[in-house]
Design a protein around this nucleic acid. Sequence first.
DNA 1: ATGTCTTTGTGAACGCGTGCACAAAGATGG
DNA 2: CCATCTTTGTGCACGCGTTCACAAAGACAT
Lengths: 217, 217
Amino acid sequence: MPTVSSEELAAAAGVNSAKLRKDFSYLGSYGTRGVGYDVEYLVYQISRELGLTQDWPVVIVGIGNLGAALANYGGFASRGFRVAALIDADPAMAGKPVAGIPVQHTDDLEKIIEDNGVSIGVIATPAGAAQPVCDRLVAAGVTSILNFAPTVLSVPDGVDVRKVDLSIELQILAFHEQRKAGEEAAAGTDGGAPAVAARSESADQGPDGDVPAVMPA
Amino acid sequence: MPTVSSEELAAAAGVNSAKLRKDFSYLGSYGTRGVGYDVEYLVYQISRELGLTQDWPVVIVGIGNLGAALANYGGFASRGFRVAALIDADPAMAGKPVAGIPVQHTDDLEKIIEDNGVSIGVIATPAGAAQPVCDRLVAAGVTSILNFAPTVLSVPDGVDVRKVDLSIELQILAFHEQRKAGEEAAAGTDGGAPAVAARSESADQGPDGDVPAVMPA
DNA sequence: ATGTCTTTGTGAACGCGTGCACAAAGATGG
DNA sequence: CCATCTTTGTGCACGCGTTCACAAAGACAT
């Protein structure tokens, strides 16, 4: 039986082994003392807890460049997501296949949601269309929305919204970039602006809280 | 002189007013006691600190659907970003305008970087091309990279990389969705898996740390 | 000028998450 | 069957960030 110790996993992931063990125990995963965790069982448990073993039908609304990019994105299937339908308001798009899936017209949105049992919707429309589309998705039964449009959506309680702003990540990079450039010139300046806490080591490449919480809209 | 108090801003942003004041003082912004903060001055200070007043030329490498979507994205200009060039490996793309900017061939990558003084690069290529492109960008002087390709890039010290995985946000939604569905059935089950901490209130729509730190690759 | 009232800026306390350290558990070998 | 060794699971302490609470500062009225 192939096993891994929390120590090995922690080293590979670059985290503390105690934290890792605590997280696992918290998920109800049981390892064997003196041996470690059964790899296969562990993978299954985590996959199940994260919802990777389920089939999540999603619809993408707004098949412009971004919508098409999402439809073509290969990483969804392996994570348990299935693109159930593509929806666009442009009648000229209707029937045209994108990533092998024919685009359907917005008129049929409600029917598509119901027929496919969709509970997760992706909005990749222009800003102006986002809120109306969102309202219709929610009314049709969607309870989770991933929003790429540059608008804050208002939804009733019980509906989750996550907004992806492609420029925020760029802004974070620019912020660090500015600090890089400013550091050389900082020595010898007059009472300049107090230094902002630099992110020290941590070579992770993910979005996380290494930026000030308060940002202008 | 139009002003705002930390209390007003905090209420609008949904954060604690003391934290907001501390952040402002930390940025060197000075308010007036008994009055509040001068709006115009505050906006300027924050913009400057965040790098919004600077002009950041960026290049986008890989002009597929995603690259085109990024090139067309309107939110960049207002945040201080300027798309200096679009680069693609496909000779058929060369010269073709996308979002009003002619696509250039990968062969000229180094020259483009130098001529435009680019320090931020965006990679929207397929996974296989990402690392080589990254290496060339870094060699040409780029010190910040925004990576949309599903690969972890390795870069020398001093270079910042941020990876955007479009499926992670979906996965987070699916995770919450699963918990919604599981809660009703949870009452009366046998000794089931210990409940994972649900995110309580906080109606923010941004990416933040409300998910377990440890996730499988 | 003096007093009052508002709001800032910040020292101090609180709470939470992370990491340490160790006892309990089980495997393995003699 | 007992001893030893490895690794888990977790109580406890430390440290950091958030929040509280208040003194200092300035505006404004009298």
